[in-house]
């Protein structure tokens, strides 16, 4: 059984479904429960969508990379996309948002707070951050990110696998 699976995809919305399907098969091979696979697939889609949305794809060779690794206790999902200095504002917001979400012991609390914030209708379009909160709460996962020396943004998620997460 393979421990990890990797993809490099064009920044194209249609690619998300393909990756999602292949990841689902890969996760099924590790005998994870249907609920867990559903949560992890949601996370993979959400991270790739963000990668496409915020990535800076200047040449055809610029891709979104996805790595999913399963070990005894955790599933780690890493999504890479190229960024340049114009992404700094987004990355600062991402930094604050991730630290805020992870500041709660129970991600449910972040979820409730975010839903409340979103229901205070903003007059101008602003990022709701609800996707990241869903990853933490529904996906039961720890989010983090960094920018590597090749100006690739790596957003990672670690999902703890416990007894009832397996079939």
């Amino acid at each position: 059984m393979k421990k990890s699976i990797e993809f490099k995809i064009k920044p194209d919305w249609d690619e998300i479904e393909k990756v999602r399907n292949e990841c689902t098969e890969f996760l099924q091979s590790h005998e994870l429960s249907d609920d867990t696979i559903h949560s992890l697939s949601m996370i993979i889609s959400e991270l790739i969508e963000n990668g496409i949305k915020y990535g800076n794809f200047k040449v055809v060779a610029d891709k979104v990379a996805v790595v999913v690794n399963v070990d005894h206790n955790n599933v780690t999902i890493e999504v890479y996309n190229p960024v340049d200095e114009s992404a700094y504002g987004h990355l600062s917001r991402l930094d604050r948002m991730i630290q805020w979400i992870r500041g709660y012991q129970d991600p449910f609390e972040a979820y409730v707070e975010r839903i409340k914030e979103v229901s205070k209708k903003p007059l101008k379009d602003v990022e709701s951050g609800i996707g990241l909160v869903r990853i933490a709460y529904e996906g039961k996962a720890l989010l983090d990110f960094f920018v590597n020396d090749n100006n690739m943004l790596n957003v990672s998620v670690i999902s703890n696998i416990e007894g009832d997460d397996r079939k």
Binding site: K116, S119, K120, P122, K124
Partner: peptide
């Protein structure tokens, strides 16, 4: 720049009570 009602605090009440 947000339309925020005081009663919004109650919007998640069923979710919180069920937790």
């Amino acid at each position: 720049n947000k339309i925020d009602k005081l009663q919004t605090e109650f919007s998640n009440l069923p979710l919180i009570l069920a937790h």
